[in-house]
Simulated scan of single mutants.
Amino acid sequence: MPQITIVAGARPNFMKIAPIIHALHGVQDTGNAITYRLIHTGQHYDKIMSGNFFEQLNIPQPHSNLGAGGGSQAEQTAAIMIGFEKELQAHPSDLVLVVGDVTSTMACAITAQKLHVPVAHVEGGIRSNDWAMPEEINRLVTDAITNHFFTTSELANANLKASGVPDARIHFVGNTMIDTLLANQDRLQPPPVWNSLHLRPKQYGVMTLHRPANVDEETQLVELINAIMSHSQDMPVVFPVHPRTAKILERLGIGHSRLHTISPLGYLEFNYLVKHAKVVITDSGGITEEASVMNVPCMTLRDNTERPETISLGTNVLVGTAPNAIQPHLETLFAGQWKTAKTIPLWDGKAAQRIVTKLQDILT
């Protein structure tokens, strides 16, 4: 029976692999089953993941945690490669499946190829064309040595073809992050802040900021938040914030009566907030996908995006990083003139099934 190794290094990775694991379990009793080992590199320590995270996604705990978090980019990459080499030597694999664009994705792809193990990349081919983003370097390196690409969009397919990848290695399957979202729509649950702040549907905003260009540049962070709060009328804004960013906010004395900073939320609770929000203001790529599918207005505080389909077909608008660009978009929102999402091809909740069907073809 073929054996694959599935790699995840951060919380969003597990959201992308959860439906793949479910689909693998779905073919376990067939004559074409695939066994797997789930490896957490430990790249990001997330206290939420030590609680009920895996239970929420209905997936098993990883078979192994490499504990390769911390250190510089180079130190972390090296630690992941060393740990993953030992993992593959102890547990030989017919294929390594990597997802997304974190350091673990790149490091494990390199390690696998040097051990002559084929690599498949879920979410291959997406590009921001911004080499200042560590994720873009990870994408470029991973895709340069990937054997099979599972893609989320026709644009990703075009990017790969332009780089010389033959059609036979490109498999347009859809978006497994959306598989997870659609599978859990009926399970979303309000976080404690829903009642404590007396939130009501479409009467509040959700904000997430984590990119260094936004949170590490202190003047930029102050001006962005001031612009958002100045032009959001009387709307409360809920800001699930990383502890590191919370310390920056506290040191800078950033505080508004309508800005509510809270601890990071679980998957079901956070997406409940997004689903019922009037607007999401973010610099995260994955959240733009989820907001678009739930038809929630989304403003991205970045100068580029690797997910342009959320703009052309979804509810996302690329605002940029200039604080003075925020006001006109909020005015459009409050005027009730935000665009409505259209159907994004193959973002239908069945991407993981397509991936497993293709893996069965590849491994037999």
Rank of each mutant, 00 (worst) to 15 (best):
G71T: 05
L160A: 09
K202L: 12
Q353E: 12
I34M: 04
N195E: 12
D186V: 10
A74P: 02
E136M: 09
V98N: 02
V215N: 09
V293A: 03
V165T: 08
R169M: 09
L209P: 04
F270Y: 12
A109P: 02
I287A: 07
S257Y: 09
R127E: 07
A33L: 06
N324W: 14
L181K: 06
Q189V: 15
Q76H: 05
A351R: 03
G320E: 10
V279D: 01
K47P: 15
L301M: 14
N271K: 09
L160N: 06
V280T: 12
H260Q: 10
L259P: 04
S196L: 07
G9K: 00
H210A: 14
S230E: 09
T321S: 15
H91I: 06
S72W: 12
T310E: 01
G164M: 11
G320W: 09
H116I: 08
I34N: 02
P201W: 03
V119H: 05
G285C: 08
M299R: 03
L224T: 13
T152D: 05
L265H: 06
R258P: 02
V102P: 02
T340Y: 15
R200K: 12
V296L: 04
F84C: 00
T300C: 10
T30R: 08
H256Q: 08
A156T: 03
N324K: 13
A8F: 01
M207G: 09
L115I: 05
G67W: 01
K161Q: 15
K202P: 02
N13F: 03
Q189F: 14
R139Q: 05
H276D: 10
P328K: 09
E136I: 04
N147R: 07
V99G: 02
L318F: 11
G286F: 08
I6H: 00
A109S: 08
S263R: 11
T180D: 05
I228N: 00
H171L: 07
P201K: 07
L197Q: 10
H231L: 04
G100K: 03
P62F: 07
T219P: 04
N129R: 13
S153H: 11
M106F: 07
V96R: 00
R37F: 08
G51Y: 13
A156W: 03
G70H: 04
F14Q: 05
N138L: 06
A213P: 06
E290I: 11
Q327R: 15
T364K: 12
A325M: 12
D234I: 01
T176K: 03
E269G: 15
A68K: 00
L249P: 02
A277R: 02
L115N: 07
E75A: 11
P19I: 14
A351T: 09
A79F: 01
K47H: 15
N195M: 10
S104A: 09
E217N: 15
A352Y: 00
D130T: 13
G67Y: 00
M106E: 07
V293I: 14
G164D: 10
A168L: 15
D130K: 12
S230F: 05
L160V: 07
T310A: 06
A227N: 09
W131D: 14
H231W: 03
N157R: 13
D361P: 02
H210D: 13
E306N: 10
Q76E: 06
P243S: 03
M1C: 10
H256E: 07
I34Y: 02
E154F: 10
L346W: 04
P240I: 08
T111R: 00
A132C: 14
